[in-house]
Structure formats: structure tokens, C-alpha cells
Design a protein around this nucleic acid. Structure first.
Lengths: 120, 120
DNA sequence: TGCAATACCCACCAGGAGGTAAGTATGACC
DNA sequence: GGTCATACTTACCTCCTGGTGGGTATTGCA
């Protein structure tokens, strides 16, 4: 679970780590996914569809839904439907989504450092 | 530089982190990039083009070059050309590439956990 | 009657990512 | 003269991602 494994010399193991990781990264690919994830982390509570739409500048509905559906399928976010009119749907991070915390944190740090290095 | 920032409540800050991070993630997107990065980490030394090609199962030359060029452009890998015949080119992680270590580690951990959760 | 609010779905399109197969340049070696 | 190795480049093709602009269902309210 630490770097003792993934930096090892065994080429077989490297392939295993590399393929698992690229497979996992593919779950995060998509123009709006990390934005959604970060918003859900920051909110610390479920967010409604329209709330996400409002918070994420530049998404349209189709894109937001598409990305949410993929995140849901991949087990990152959960969907809670309230049978009301007008409809109400809430999105949350699942356990697996919350487990992304360290990765997101490291990526945020790196992104920050990168911005600095490239000159604001 | 820690989670005290990116999980804050300030919506302005959230947008800054989210956009910086999605921008940074876009640098890692591409079917072979993390695989390349992990191989370079694991090798602990520069790798020649043909060596990368040999280690990464399934890439073809065009894809490998394309991804290496993009990683180079984004400042993740460095390229060292030796004026020989037959040609010799070595690829290394730059400082910014090495700085990806914690992110890669966290992602590897998550990918591992995910595999377990999905039933290997 | 008709409009507002919410959370979607559908048809369609452009551009780019990914992939295959072939070609290029150079000098050494046989 | 022909082949080999290395690190590419090029032409061409397919499929997916992202995006636009509409439509749908339900009920309350004026």
C-alpha cells in the first residue's frame, strides 16, 4: 500500500500497478469529473443537481448528467432520488469516492506547485 | 499545500483549485502516460525509446512518441539525444515529473483498493 | 389556460484521440 | 550492394468525447 511496492524492480509487478492505475485514472478522465468530485468534497454534504450545475461554471446539463452517470457507474458518487414534484435528486461521494481524498489532495498540491513553477 | 485549503468552504477558492487540478489532470490523460511515468519511476534511471517500447506492452511507436512528446511539452519528462548512429535517445523524469510521486503513489493505492473492492 | 421549476432525454455534429501500416534517415557490418 | 538497428514520420481510418439545441414529465400556482 506504500511506495515499497510500486517502485519495485520487478517488471511483472510494474505492469500490474501500471495497468491498475491507468484503469483507475480512466475513471477520473472527463472534462468535469474532478471538478464534480472537488465540489462534493468541499460541500461536505449532498448536492442537488441544480446546485452542482450552479457551482460548476461552464457545464451544460447533458455534460453534467453524463459525467455524473459515469461516476455513479464507476462507484464514485451515489445518487439519491426523492419522489417529489418538482423532482429532487441528491449526489454524494461514496466510500470509494471519499477514498480518493489523498489522491485529490496530492494532485491539488502538484497542480499548485505547477502553477507556481509556470509563473502564476 | 495541505487539505486545509482545497476543502475550504470558499466557493471562489474551490473554483481555483478545481480548475487548476483539472488542468493538471489533463496533463496525465492519455492512454499511455501514467504507464510511461510509472515505468520511468520504477526504472530509477533514464530509459531509451526502444526500452520503453519493450517494457510497455501494447503501445505502438506512433502512440509512444505522441505521448512522450506531450509529456515533454508539459514538462514531465526530459529528452536527451545522443548524436550517434543508430540513434540513441533517453527519456527521464524532470523535477516536475518526480514531484508527481505522491500523486502517483496515492493513485496506485486507490487503484489497488478499488481492485480489492471490485473483487480483484 | 398557461407558465414556472426540476431533472432529465434525444438527435445531431465537429474535432480529436487512438490505431495500423508503411516510409525515412544514417552509418556499420557482411 | 544489401541488410540491420534505432528513432522516428506520414497517410489514412475509426470511434469516442464534448457540445448545442431542442424536447419531456409532473404538479403547483396565477
Amino acid at each position: 500500500m506504500t511506495d515499497r511496492d510500486w517502485r519495485c524492480e520487478d517488471p511483472e509487478q510494474q505492469l500490474v500497478w501500471a495497468s491498475a492505475t491507468s484503469e483507475a485514472l480512466r475513471v477520473l478522465e472527463g472534462k468535469w469529473k474532478i471538478v464534480i468530485i472537488i465540489q462534493l468534497f468541499a460541500a461536505k454534504s449532498p448536492l442537488r443537481f441544480s446546485e452542482l450545475e450552479r457551482r460548476i461554471e461552464g457545464v451544460n446539463q447533458k455534460m453534467l448528467i453524463q459525467q455524473l452517470r459515469q461516476l455513479e457507474k464507476d462507484g464514485i458518487v451515489g445518487r439519491m432520488v426523492y419522489p417529489q414534484v418538482p423532482p429532487k435528486v441528491e449526489y454524494t461521494l461514496t466510500e470509494m469516492g471519499i477514498a480518493l481524498g489523498p489522491s485529490v489532495e496530492a494532485l491539488v498540491d502538484w497542480a499548485f506547485m505547477r502553477r507556481e513553477a509556470l509563473g502564476h
